[in-house]
């Protein structure tokens, strides 16, 4: 298979409410900025792929409007996944591997602010047996956290430590929506939200967009001094029936991590797409990440969670650290569905 590397990444400011700005307005600046960062324009792009979800915009074919943010005359080679844009990145890799493209643009975007996100996500479940009960996304994550507490795998203190570390790390990320210095004791003193979750255990609602460039080997070396090479990548799905899963585990993350080659070397940095604090702990365990690994130095999804871009953001943040010479080997992870149902893991190297 041909080699591929990430050579550019831009993220918009993570905001609770982007106001009247539509999706195209959110996408346009990040697409322009990421192209400027390596000195290319749309005519140099062989393939463009985006990730978004119609339901957040409340309109069918919402990504068609999103495409207005990209120069499409003359027509471009383009595709779209109704998934996190990390899977759009995967589609780009398929194009590069099969020799159909050398330089690809990926973007992900959403405005979750106008709708009721936790209820919209209920519609991901089995429409005949589960949806009529309207279990919302936060309640399902709470069931998972409860299962972990009951099994003695984690304590509420462990969860608060994840939050404190994420918010503190986010102080160094100017794009982060939530950041700050809080002690574990202060966090544990906060009231419950959906037991056992407190509000800070849940990723915020965020509007925004992100863009990333991925290239074949020769193009990557030409455009970037220190590309972030994708050394291994794999993604795996689990059943949609929550009752059939052990929610304290993530076999799909473990398997994808093994296939991506996470354990083949020391990991400097890992960005894990964990919209809930306890999920970071599951992922750390399943990917076998040692105690010394820097986890979510961007602040992670707990500091800003643009639906359909937050997984791509994990790739972007790891790649940025490698491109800037701050890390040599990193792990990027994206998830989809309730309680970490689907997981994508990649190893990036300098």
């Amino acid at each position: 298979m041909r080699e591929a590397a990430i050579i550019g990444y831009t993220q918009s400011a993570q905001r609770r409410y982007a106001g009247a700005a539509n999706e195209s307005e959110l996408i346009m600046p990040v697409v322009r900025e990421v192209m400027q960062s390596v000195g290319v324009s749309q005519k140099d792009i062989d393939f463009t792929c985006s990730g978004s979800c119609d339901y957040f915009q409340g309109a069918a074919f919402a990504f068609v409007e999103g495409l207005n943010a990209v120069a499409t005359a003359p027509p471009i080679r383009e595709s779209h996944v109704e998934m996190d844009a990390a899977w759009a990145l995967y589609e780009c890799l398929l194009k590069i591997w099969s020799g159909e493209a050398d330089l690809c643009l990926v973007y992900g975007f959403s405005k979750s602010s106008p709708g009721e996100l936790r209820s919209v996500l209920t519609l991901q479940l089995d429409p005949y047996y589960q949806v009529p009960l309207w279990p919302d996304a936060i309640s399902l994550a709470a069931l998972q956290a409860r299962a972990m507490l009951d099994a003695g795998i984690i304590s509420e203190r462990d969860m608060a430590e994840v939050v404190a570390r994420s918010r503190r790390a986010a102080l160094a990320n100017p794009k982060a929506q939530l950041s700050g210095e809080s002690s574990v004791e202060e966090l544990l003193a906060q009231p419950g939200f959906v037991s056992p979750l407190r509000r800070h255990d849940c990723a915020p609602i965020t509007d925004g967009a992100s863009a990333l460039l991925v290239a074949s080997a020769e193009t990557a070396r030409r455009l970037c001094a220190r590309p972030a090479w994708i050394r291994g990548i794999d993604h795996r799905m689990e059943t949609g029936m929550l009752g059939a899963r052990d929610l304290t585990r993530s076999p799909s993350a473990r398997y994808a991590g093994a296939r991506a080659g996470v354990s083949a070397g020391a990991v400097d940095v890992a960005e894990l797409h964990a919209p809930f604090s306890h999920q970071e702990i599951i992922l750390r365990r399943e990917l076998g990440l040692a105690d010394g690994v820097s986890i979510n130095p961007s602040g992670g999804a707990l500091a800003g969670n643009v639906m359909m871009a937050a997984g791509l953001d994990r790739f972007g943040h790891v790649a940025t650290r490698i491109m800037q010479g701050e890390a040599g080997r990193g792990v990027a992870h994206a998830t989809s569905g309730a309680c970490l149902q689907q997981n994508l893991v990649a190893v990036l190297e300098a």
């Binding site: 339901y55 069918a60 109704e82 993604h235 689990e238 949609g240």
Partner: peptide, 29 residues
């Protein structure tokens, strides 16, 4: 569009029916 059936990202629900469990699954639109 997912609005045609009212199921958001239906690959998550349909994976059981399509033997997707434990495999890479991608949804195009």
């Amino acid at each position: 569009p997912d609005m045609f059936e009212g199921v958001v990202m239906p690959e998550l629900y349909l994976t059981d029916a399509l033997g997707g469990n434990g495999k890479p699954v991608l949804r195009v639109h």
